[in-house]
Amino acid sequence: MNKYEIMFIVKPDVEEEARNTVIETLKAILATDNGTIDSVNEWGLRDLAYEVKKFSKGYYVVIETTTTPANIKEFDRISKINDSVLRQLTLRK
């Protein structure tokens, strides 16, 4: 198990209930196979440095987790498929 810090940006036009569902789904992927979610920090709606898919704002979420590389790979796959996620970045601590 390794420690990771993951930041992802959700589209600003996603409703609060749908956004919370996206966040919980992604957290559940990281928590499988004895993975743990150490902290979740929702930064909220912020300006992007540059337009991404014609959006100038995004809802930022930072997750610190201890999980397996397989869970990270699945997280990356699902976040790329999900239309609500604009960008994501995973860093190993």
Rank of each mutant, 00 (worst) to 15 (best):
E74M: 06
K53F: 00
R87C: 09
A49S: 04
D13E: 14
E15F: 07
E42S: 04
Y60T: 00
D83V: 09
E15H: 12
V22G: 15
L45V: 02
A28Y: 04
R46G: 01
D13K: 14
S79P: 10
L48G: 02
E5W: 07
I63D: 01
V40C: 00
S84E: 12
V40S: 00
M1V: 07
V61G: 03
K57A: 00
T21R: 13
N2R: 14
T67F: 02
V62N: 04
N71C: 08
I37A: 04
K54G: 02
V40W: 00
P12D: 14
Y4V: 08
K73I: 06
K3S: 13
Y60E: 04
A70E: 13
I72K: 04
E16T: 08
R19K: 15
T21F: 07
G44T: 01
Q88L: 11
I9V: 15
M1N: 07
D47R: 03
I23C: 12
D33E: 14
G58N: 03
K54R: 05
F75V: 06
I78N: 06
T65S: 09
K54S: 04
T32C: 05
I6K: 09
L48K: 01
V62C: 04
R92W: 05
I23G: 15
E15R: 13
T21Q: 13
D13C: 11
N20K: 15
G35L: 03
D13G: 14
A18V: 13
R87V: 06
A70G: 07
K93T: 11
P69W: 03
D47S: 04
E5K: 11
T68A: 05
R92Y: 06
L30S: 06
I23A: 12
I72V: 15
K57V: 01
S84G: 08
L89P: 09
I78K: 12
E51I: 02
D38C: 02
N41V: 03
I72C: 08
E17K: 15
N71S: 14
S79F: 07
E42Y: 02
E15Y: 07
E42M: 03
L48P: 01
D47N: 05
N41F: 02
N20H: 09
K57C: 02
V10T: 10
N2C: 08
S56Y: 00
N34D: 14
T21L: 11
R92A: 13
L89G: 13
T32R: 15
K73F: 06
T68I: 04
S39N: 06
T36F: 03
T25F: 07
E74L: 08
I9H: 10
Y4F: 13
D13A: 13
N20S: 13
V10N: 13
K27E: 13
D47M: 01
N82I: 06
